[in-house]
Amino acid sequence: MYTGDTADIKKMNRKALLEIVRYHGPISQPEIYNMTNITPTTILSLLEELKSDNLIFQHDTSYRPDGITKSGRPPKYFSLNKNGKFVLGISVSNNIWEYTVVNLANEICLSKTCKVENNDPIKQIEDCKKVIKEVLKEFDIDHIGISVPGVVDEEKGMIIDGNSVLRGLPLKYLINREIKIPVVVVHNTLALSVCEFLIGEHALTDNVLYIYISEGVGAGMIFNGKAYSGADNYAGELGSTIINPGSNKSVTLNSFISNKAVVNFMKNNFDVDEDKLDIDYALKMLPKDQTLKNFVRRGAGYLGKVLFNLTLLLNPNIIVISGKICYYNDFINVVKSSLNSTESELKSTVTKNLKITESSFKNKENSEALAGAVYALSELDVLPDIKIEDHLKHSSLLSL
């Protein structure tokens, strides 16, 4: 039985009621009572609180979901107020700033991409603030989530390590001092893993290992339904894993399957105009050139071995692999083959129920900005942490 204090119980019940209304609305107070162990008085009190916070709304007293009028005192019906709050997600990478506005129903209300024409970080931040001000003319934003590459100090809101012109700048402070809205700066892979966990195809799978392949290889981890970022919030730098221990020269995973590694391989082995050489060009060439294909397959094989070791250590339910290179039609199959071919006495045990799949958002425009927005929603504490659909009788929910 849950033995937390009154404030914890109230918070848990409030969040559960919000999710019941989200997934089952329009829903009446008596129907909520039949789904929970919460008293009618407590239900009414929490519903009124959710209404005052613009998270839900009450239908007109004449409203009936089935259209049938019944005798007796009419019940009150409630639905999610999906436009009661908006958050803004921003992603920063390679002189591209992306912006996505999301509402309480996780619907994308605005999506915008801005190409930056200069490398002056202060100018980039000033341009970002201009875009935010334009967004604020249309949406009442409650929170801003900024998804960035590199090692992040969330408390200071800055990139403290990595290949970014914003490195060392207090990004959170520079935006927040002029735009008085709460800002969180988060590692892009952690944001993507939270996004996958909360609203992806495998939402609320308890243990998720999320691999994001971009300029480097990052890992986002969900353990027992909670995002894990390590003692100093620096966990997840998977690309620095050494894949040739014992040799004279250390080689890391980043040397084979990052976007940078593929581009550098082409630069060193092909006669290509460097002005048009980027990961998109490399991926167009990939099906046509066996040498490049072998290089990428080798990297996928190394990733499979690393993921097998992580599976032994972490025992995830699912491994999600994301990034442009992994959508090359053979990449994930090579990863799976490499993982499954690894010899270990525990292999059949730890991989028996393991799923390896692509990201739910691989075709979603501005996915990193979307992840920043969803991370911001999680900071507002308005997203689920239990599966309402699987627990129609909430024995874990207590009356105050």
Results as ranks from 00 to 15, higher is better:
residue 272 V to M: 07
residue 353 N to T: 08
residue 220 G to Y: 04
residue 19 E to H: 02
residue 236 G to D: 02
residue 297 R to I: 09
residue 43 I to E: 14
residue 50 L to Q: 04
residue 128 C to S: 03
residue 77 Y to G: 11
residue 173 Y to H: 14
residue 384 P to L: 05
residue 99 Y to S: 07
residue 12 M to C: 13
residue 290 Q to E: 14
residue 341 S to E: 12
residue 60 D to Y: 04
residue 118 N to H: 10
residue 208 V to R: 00
residue 238 L to F: 12
residue 33 Y to Q: 13
residue 256 F to W: 11
residue 145 G to K: 01
residue 16 A to R: 05
residue 16 A to E: 09
residue 273 D to H: 07
residue 205 T to Y: 06
residue 180 K to H: 15
residue 283 L to V: 03
residue 100 T to N: 08
residue 107 E to W: 07
residue 41 T to V: 13
residue 339 L to R: 15
residue 23 Y to Q: 04
residue 159 I to P: 05
residue 224 N to G: 06
residue 360 S to N: 10
residue 335 V to N: 09
residue 306 V to H: 15
residue 319 I to L: 09
residue 312 L to S: 14
residue 166 L to T: 05
residue 96 I to V: 09
residue 245 P to M: 11
residue 260 K to Q: 15
residue 87 V to L: 07
residue 321 I to F: 04
residue 193 S to N: 00
residue 126 E to Q: 15
residue 221 M to P: 00
residue 136 L to I: 11
residue 79 S to E: 13
residue 167 R to P: 00
residue 201 E to D: 15
residue 38 I to Y: 10
residue 79 S to T: 15
residue 201 E to H: 07
residue 90 I to F: 01
residue 277 L to P: 12
residue 173 Y to W: 10
residue 68 I to G: 09
residue 237 E to V: 04
residue 383 L to I: 02
residue 394 H to P: 06
residue 349 T to R: 09
residue 232 D to L: 02
residue 336 K to L: 12
residue 295 F to H: 11
residue 95 N to A: 10
residue 203 A to D: 06
residue 370 L to M: 08
residue 337 S to I: 01
residue 47 L to Q: 02
residue 250 S to K: 12
residue 393 K to Q: 14
residue 322 S to M: 06
residue 305 K to L: 10
residue 36 T to H: 11
residue 75 P to V: 00
residue 276 K to N: 15
residue 316 P to R: 00
residue 96 I to P: 01
residue 177 R to G: 10
residue 79 S to M: 05
residue 13 N to G: 14
residue 395 S to W: 00
residue 347 K to P: 10
residue 265 F to L: 08
residue 399 S to R: 15
residue 376 A to E: 03
residue 227 A to S: 14
residue 30 P to W: 12
residue 376 A to M: 02
residue 375 Y to L: 08
residue 41 T to N: 11
residue 398 L to S: 05
residue 378 S to K: 06
residue 359 S to T: 15
residue 40 P to T: 13
residue 316 P to L: 12
residue 335 V to I: 15
residue 210 Y to A: 02
residue 359 S to I: 03
residue 197 F to Q: 05
residue 237 E to F: 03
residue 50 L to N: 07
residue 369 A to T: 03
residue 290 Q to N: 13
residue 259 N to Y: 02
residue 305 K to R: 14
residue 396 S to H: 08
residue 282 A to G: 13
residue 312 L to K: 15
residue 352 K to P: 08
residue 52 S to E: 14
residue 99 Y to H: 01
residue 400 L to Y: 12
residue 52 S to G: 04
residue 106 N to V: 00
residue 245 P to D: 03
residue 77 Y to K: 02
residue 227 A to T: 00
residue 229 S to D: 01
residue 270 F to W: 03
residue 58 Q to T: 15
